[in-house]
Amino acid sequence: MNSLTDEQLTRYSRHILLPQVGGRGQQRISAARVFLVGAGGLGSPAALYLASAGVGTVGIADNDTVDLSNLQRQVIHDTKRLGWGKALSAAETISKMNPDVKVVPYAERLSADNILERMKDYDIILDGSDNFSTRYLVSDAAFFLKKTLISGSIFRFEGQVTTLKPHEDGYPCYRCLYPEAPPEGMVPSCQEAGVLGVLAGVIGTLQATEAIKEILSIGDTLAGRLILYDALDMSARSVRVPKNTSCALCGAQPTITSLVESVTTCGTAATA
């Protein structure tokens, strides 16, 4: 690992002061590569904090463009960027904030054809996507590549966060948690349902927190637990997520052995 420059020692001094981080920990953060699925409500705050923490490489996949209705929660973009690609806009913000970070925008839709190639060089994946088709695709790809996946999702005033690393003994995958996606039309989208903007900040920031902990191997992992946050109640609960030994993906006799992409149109099963 490269040693830290004087400027970096200052920039990251509040990290380095923490015994759980220190200079070595900061070097690990600087060497880490994190891939964000989506530069939207969850990806925006996650990307900002990961970049300010000095994560060495941040990949951002998003094929959407910045719309005025996004800016209520997607804090990495701004009014002057309306119409910009979100991946590029996010990359621009990060580059200005922390030149230490190598940021790689992918302005394309992730598919079964490209996702393994896009994700293979990263250590940790953060999913902040807005539809079930992408969620299962990302989760399956992360499993095949043995990458730790930190999943966050939001709906109106409620959010969920969990860490999925089925490649490590005894931990579940997304399909252990939710075996199948809802059929189209069963779940309203955020376009239909609305979402509290700051909720995206809470959940995206929790995802970034867990990413940093995984990079540093500190604290208790969120793997095997699901956090349920309710902004209206101001309550956070934790439930257990066991590994399903008969899981179609990570179980003893898997039936899913390659990437399959279910086609759902955004806006029906989506909830962003």
Partner: peptide, 12 residues
């Protein structure tokens, strides 16, 4: 008893 549905929102 908690009822918890799968949620996909995050916004792209």
């Amino acid at each position: 008893v908690s009822i918890v549905p799968a949620v996909a929102g995050g916004s792209y």
